[in-house]
Write a protein that binds this DNA or RNA. Structure first.
Lengths: 369, 369
DNA sequence: TTGTAGGCGTTATCAC
DNA sequence: GTGATAACGCCTACAA
C-alpha cells in the first residue's frame, strides 16, 4: 500500500489546515504534495455522513442549521475543497472547453482568445489553450481531448486545411464552434465571423471616393474563405481595374509581391492604390514601396485589414478595416456554451459581426502619375 | 433511472461507431450527445474483462496476441476512447496546468503564453488560460482550480499586488512558478525572468557611448520589481544626470509625463535622451516630443523596453531592449513541470534569461542644445 | 432531517 | 495470461 489508509479513520483526516500554517514547506521545499482532505474526512470529523456534507455544501437539500454549522467549521479547519475531478466524472462534464488557434502571438488571435476566455469565465468554464502552429498533428492531439471527454466543447479558429478530415468526424457529434474562419465542407456548424466582405466593400468605396481607379489587391491564400470574401467585396465596390496577387497573410509575402511588381517595371499603369488582405501584408507592401522611393500616401495609397495594434503606430498610420476579434471570440464561445451547458450539439447557425473602416494616414486622394 | 442501463448488457454497448457514420446528426442537429462506449462495453463485446482491455491499451502487462487483436478491433468498432477524467481521478493528477496572466492581448504576455503552451504540450500537458484583467476576484477564482485539484500546477505571471495573500497560502504547498515578475515576499519560489537590470545597463551604456549625459527615465509602477530593476541598471551604467518620473507602463502615461515636463518649460537643461521602462510608454513619449516640435533622434534620443512588434514598425523604429518573453514562459513552465511530473512542489530557484539591445532609428549621438 | 448504497470509468492489487 | 475486486472522490436515488 503506497499511502496510509488513514483517510477515513483518523478523525481529522490529513490534519493540518490548508488555509493557515506556514507558507513554505519545512523540509527544504522538496515536499511531496500531501493527500488533501476528502469528503469522507470531513464527514468523519463532523460526525455525519458524506451525504450530509455534500448537501451542506451544495444546498441541494435542507440540512439542520446546527449540523450545517458544525460541518462548515470542519470544512474550514481541514481546508476541504471538493475535488472537481470526481465531481466531473459523476456529472459527465468538466466545465472546460478548448480554444484552437494557430498562433496566440498574433494579436488578432490573442484578442479573439481574450473574448473567448471572457465568455468562458462568465459561465464558470475553463479554457484550454490549443495553439497549433499550423501543425496538423498537434491539432489532432488536441481534438483528442474532446473524444476523451476531457473538454466539453471546442472553439475552433485554426483554419489550416489539413485539419478538415478530423473535424468532420467530430462535427455534429461533439460541440464545436467555428470562429473567424469558415471551413469549407463544414457548413453545418455554428460559426461566428467578421463581415469580411463588407470590410472589402468599405475599402473599395473609400478608395473609389478618393478618386482611385486602378488598384493592386494582395489576397490571402486561396484556401481561406475570409481572404476571398475581402477581395470580392472590394472588387464589387471599387468598380475599377484590379490586379490580384496571392499572398499568405505574412509580412514577407506583402513585401515580395510588391517588390516583384516594381522590379518588373513598376506598378501597373495608373495604379495608385494597394489593398492588402491583412495588415501584416500591408506593412510589407509599405516597406517595398518606400524602398522603391515611392511615397505613401502621396504616390500610392495603402489599405490593410484587421487593425492590429501596430497599424496605428506605423508610419504613416495605416488605413485599415477594424475586425472585432474580441467579439468574434466572445460570440463563438458564448454561443457554443449555450448548447454545451444543456448537453446539446449546436445546430448550424451564423453570426456575422460588423467591421469598421479606420481611415488613417496611408490613404489620400489619387494623383495622376 | 435517467439512462438505460444497457451499458454492460448490450453486446455492442452504445453501438454505433464514432469514427464512421454520417458526419451530421440526423435529427436536425439538436442531438443530445450520446453516451460513449466505456471500457466495460468494450470488454463485454470482446468477451474479456475490463482489466484486459486496459492492459491491451496501456501495454502495462503482456496480453495474448490473439486476444489483443480482438480487443483492438472492438475498440475501433465502438470508437472507444478512454475517459481521461476517470484516469485522472485514479491517478490523482490531471496533466493540466494553469497560466495566469493579466492580459493575453498584450503581445508580451501572448509570447509568454506561447512559450508556456509549447513547454506544456511537449510533456503532454494541457494549459488553461487564466486571463485576470488585473481583477483579484477573477484571479482568486482561478487559483481555486488548484485547490480543487483540477490542475496540477500554475504558472503565475500576473504581478498585480492584491493577489499576494492568496498566493502566499499556496506557495510551498502547491506547484507554482513565477514568470517574468517577482512577487515581493515570495522569494521561496521558482522563478523565471528576463535580466531586467542588465537590460537597463545596456541602455545606459548605449546612451553614454553616444555622448548623452543627461536623461529622463520613465519608470513603471513602484510595486513592480522589474521596472525598478530596469531603472537601476540604467542609472548605474549611464553615470550621468538622471531625472525620474513614475508611470504605469501604459502609452498614455508616457505621453503625459513628457508632455507635462515640456509644458513646464521643456526637458531639463541639457537632457538629450529618454529611457522609458517599456515600449508603450516610449511610444507615448515619442508622440509628446513630436507634438512639441522636437525631432527624434536629432534633438532627443528615445529608448524603450520589451521589443514588442510595433517597435520596429514605428517611426522612427524604436531602439529598445528585446525581452525573451517566449523563453520566460517556456522556462517557467518547463521548470515547473519538472517537479509536477514527480508530484513535488518546486524549490526556490531562479532562472535569469538574457536580454538584447536592439539599436534602431530612435537613438543618435547627442547634440548640444 | 439524515444515512446507505450504487455508480461515474479507470487502473492497481491480488489471486488464479 | 487473465480476471475479480477495491479504490480514486463525489453525487444522488432511495430508504428510514
Amino acid at each position: 500500500m503506497t499511502r496510509e489508509s488513514q483517510g477515513s479513520r483518523a478523525p481529522y483526516g490529513p490534519g493540518q489546515s490548508y488555509e493557515s500554517g506556514q507558507p513554505y514547506a519545512s523540509d527544504g521545499n522538496r515536499a511531496a504534495v500531501r493527500r488533501p482532505a476528502s469528503i469522507k474526512d470531513v464527514a468523519a470529523a463532523a460526525g455525519v455522513s458524506p451525504t450530509t456534507v455534500s448537501h451542506v455544501l451544495s444546498g441541494n437539500r435542507p440540512v439542520n442549521e446546527l449540523t450545517a454549522t458544525r460541518v462548515r467549521s470542519v470544512v474550514n479547519r481541514l481546508g476541504y475543497v471538493p475535488a472537481s475531478l470526481a465531481r466531473s466524472l459523476q456529472a459527465g462534464s468538466t466545465s472546460v472547453i478548448g480554444l484552437m488557434i494557430p498562433d496566440i502571438s498574433n494579436t488578432f488571435f490573442a484578442e479573439l482568445a481574450k473574448g473567448a476566455e471572457d465568455a468562458a469565465h462568465d459561465l464558470g468554464y475553463g479554457l484550454i489553450l490549443c495553439n497549433t502552429e499550423f501543425d496538423a498533428d498537434r491539432e489532432d492531439r488536441y481534438l483528442g481531448m474532446i473524444r476523451s471527454r476531457f473538454i466539453d466543447g471546442m472553439v475552433y479558429a485554426s483554419g489550416s486545411p489539413p485539419s478538415r478530415r478530423r473535424l468532420e468526424a467530430l462535427m455534429g457529434k461533439f460541440p464545436i464552434a467555428l470562429a473567424d474562419e469558415e471551413v469549407e465542407g463544414l457548413e453545418g456548424a455554428l460559426i461566428a465571423t467578421a463581415d469580411h466582405e463588407a470590410g472589402g466593400r468599405l475599402v473599395g468605396e473609400h478608395l473609389r471616393a478618393l478618386g482611385h481607379r486602378q488598384a493592386l489587391v494582395l489576397t490571402g491564400p486561396r484556401a481561406l474563405k475570409s481572404g476571398i470574401a475581402r477581395a470580392n467585396g472590394f472588387v464589387q465596390a471599387f468598380r475599377g481595374e484590379v490586379v490580384e496577387r496571392v499572398g499568405d497573410f505574412k509580412e514577407a509575402s506583402g513585401y515580395r509581391l510588391v517588390a516583384e511588381l516594381l522590379k518588373e517595371g513598376g506598378l501597373p499603369e495608373g495604379c495608385t492604390a494597394v489593398f492588402a488582405a491583412n495588415d501584416l501584408m500591408a506593412f510589407g507592401a509599405l516597406l517595398a514601396l518606400r524602398e522603391a522611393g515611392l511615397s505613401v500616401p502621396d504616390d500610392v495609397s495603402v489599405v490593410g485589414f484587421d487593425d492590429i495594434r501596430a497599424a496605428s503606430l506605423a508610419h504613416p498610420p495605416l488605413t485599415t478595416v477594424h475586425q472585432p476579434a474580441y467579439d468574434v471570440g466572445r460570440t463563438a464561445t458564448a454561443q457554443l456554451l449555450q448548447y454545451v451547458t444543456r448537453g446539446e450539439v449546436p445546430p448550424a447557425s451564423r453570426h456575422t459581426l460588423p467591421v469598421e473602416l479606420k481611415v488613417r494616414g496611408s490613404t489620400a486622394p489619387a494623383t495622376t502619375r
